[in-house]
């Protein structure tokens, strides 16, 4: 009994150490979105390409799709951009853009110069839709099903790892569900 007691500090140390080690691996930016399994919020905002054309929630529905929040002021978006072009081409998944708190001319020029992976772009100048979506930075990417329910959210750059590990399996699952129902 007395011998065992000597090990108490060691046991406490190991327990505390492993707890703190786990804490190091956690990414504080990886927060669960409050909108998972909720409907995409309603909005009515102009298109980036054409200020006269208004877009709404309905325009994004019908297919399993990605909704990508981006802006020209966001360096990570530039990193992400070629990958978005690649997945639209290879995976035939529609990507809708939300141009978040941006300057229209800059964004239009960005798309002309770097290519346009988006089916359509919502121009969210004030960031109002961003707040409704719980956006707190760019890039952020949502996966919606054909009914417009948000099924997944990724904060940060979408790359090969994120796509293959999280998004692609879910996209295939949702497509299978859609073809059954």
């Amino acid at each position: 009994m007395k011998r065992l007691k000597l090990f108490v500090p060691l046991i406490i140390f190991i327990a505390l150490g492993s707890l703190l080690l786990k804490g190091l691996e956690l990414d504080p930016n990886e927060m669960p979105s409050a909108l998972i399994d909720k409907s995409l919020p309603e909005f009515r905002l102009p298109s980036l390409e054409n200020p006269e054309a208004m877009l709404g929630r309905k325009d994004l529905l019908g297919q399993v799709a990605l909704v990508n929040v981006w802006a020209t002021w966001c360096p990570s978006c530039r990193v992400e951009h070629p990958y978005l072009l690649q997945i639209t081409e290879q995976e035939k998944i529609p990507i809708y853009g939300i141009d978040y708190k941006d300057v229209r001319e800059d964004a239009q020029q960005w798309l002309r110069k770097l290519g346009n992976p988006y089916v359509a772009n919502v121009f969210d100048e004030q960031g109002k839709l961003g707040i409704d979506l719980g956006v707190f930075g760019a890039p952020e990417t949502y996966l919606i099903d054909q009914k417009g329910v948000i099924r997944y959210k990724h904060i940060g750059v979408v790359d090969d790892q994120v796509w293959l590990k999280h998004l692609k399996p879910l996209v295939e699952q949702l497509r299978a569900e859609a073809s059954q129902g």
């Binding site: 927060m31 669960p32 979105s33 409050a34 909108l35 707040i131 409704d132 979506l133 719980g134 707190f136």
Partner: peptide, 8 residues
């Protein structure tokens, strides 16, 4: 705010 950003 909780509806949009979570309990967090």
């Amino acid at each position: 705010l909780v509806d949009r950003y979570g309990e967090y």
